[in-house]
Design a binder for these strands. Structure first.
Length: 341
DNA sequence: TCCTCCTGTCGGTCTACAAG
DNA sequence: CTTGTAGACCGACAGGAGGA
């Protein structure tokens, strides 16, 4: 025999009060509503005895809030994104919010579909690392005044709250580091993506090379290419360019593919090729040799995201504060994959 | 036999108001 | 004045009433 779930109505009946009184007591509004301490005690005791669990669906029906924050990242399995998601989940739960997350796979159509699902789920806030092509949908969300924060990349034309890392400075520093260590022909392996964060990384690389009067060499890998194809393309690139003595990879998974490529060519890191990865990976310090990287400050990123989100959720946003981009500095993690002197 | 309205239902929240 | 309550309401949907 299945027992019906306990509702505030059952508690109200048992204690002999109205559901309103039960609701006030269970939501900590007893003092505000001047419910007597004795009655409060009775209600709390009855709730505990019957194992009362609030019905979130009903709560949402009444308040219009789901207490759910929707988060979309490129791949939740990516260490960068999963670390941030974990920290955000932690901060959200401290305020009674749950996190719903999905991977966009950087695919426009999938993201549009996810946005629809999130809207139907009535999420109270959005945290999105948007793929290209969803500008219109994001604009619609902004117009509807839903709390929203974009991170990792954003659309410069949209009046949104954004959190990004100074991508240009990160790649600039990395390239300068190669130069300072005596590398002469430094290549950049990046994605054929037009998104701002990738463009910025490329710009940083170009800037550092221009300053030292060197010629840039950029190889674009399709961002839709699976792992094997990425490795194959990087192998071909290295074989085509024997003069290259250092490679900067613009994402951590490109770096992993690159390291595989270099190993399969039986070249040594850093003897034959210096390597730096933009974006760190939890295991880079365990590699042989350990991999120098430009680390994104994940803690600072999640902190900034939640600051911006709570600000929107806590109160009406002032019109002139409708746009803000927090730019955080990346950090060069010097390890052993650069070489030279 | 359809189809279109209409009403009630779910579990909470909260305003307006009443009893003592 | 203190303490507590009645009942409208939220949105989606099932199911009944009644008309064509």
């Amino acid at each position: 025999m299945k027992k019906k779930k306990v509702s505030i109505y059952d508690i109200a009946e048992e204690v002999g009060v109205s559901t309103a009184t039960v609701s006030y007591v269970l939501n900590g509004k007893a003092a505000e509503k001047r419910i007597s301490p004795e009655l409060q005690k009775q209600i709390l005791r009855s709730a505990k005895k019957n194992g009362y669990q609030p019905n979130m669906l009903a709560k949402g029906l009444s308040t219009g809030k789901s207490k759910i924050i929707g988060m979309m990242v490129e791949y939740i399995s990516d260490p960068f994104f999963s670390t941030i998601a974990r920290q955000i989940e932690d901060k959200a739960s401290r305020r009674g919010y749950k996190l719903l997350y999905s991977s966009t796979e950087n695919c426009t159509d999938k993201t549009k579909e996810l946005l629809r699902v999130y809207r139907e789920t009535q999420v109270d806030g959005y945290i999105i690392a948007p793929p290209p092509g969803v500008e219109k949908e994001i604009r619609t969300l902004l117009r509807s005044q839903v709390p929203l924060v974009l991170f990792d990349r954003f659309f410069p034309d949209l009046p949104s709250f954004n959190v990004i890392v100074d991508n240009q400075a990160g790649c600039y520093e990395a390239t300068r580091h190669f130069i300072a260590r005596g590398h002469r022909n430094i290549a950049l392996v990046t994605l054929d993506s037009l998104q701002v964060q990738m463009a910025e990384r490329t710009t940083g690389y170009h800037k550092a090379l221009e300053e030292s009067g060197r010629t840039p060499l950029v190889r674009h890998i399709p961002f839709t290419a699976p792992e094997e194809e990425r490795v194959r393309r990087i192998i071909a690139f290295i074989e085509d360019h024997p003069e290259v003595d250092a490679v900067l990879f613009s994402t951590n998974y490109l770096a992993i593919s690159g390291i595989k490529a270099i190993q399969s060519l039986r070249r040594s890191i850093p003897g034959d090729l210096g390597v730096i990865s933009f974006d760190d990976n939890t295991h880079f310090d365990l590699f042989t040799p350990s991999i120098t990287s430009v680390a994104q400050p994940v803690f600072g990123i999640s902190e900034a995201i939640m600051d911006l989100l709570w600000r929107q959720m806590d109160g009406p946003v002032l019109p002139r504060a409708k746009k803000e981009t927090v730019v955080l500095p990346p950090l060069l993690m010097e390890r052993n994959s650069v070489g030279r002197t």
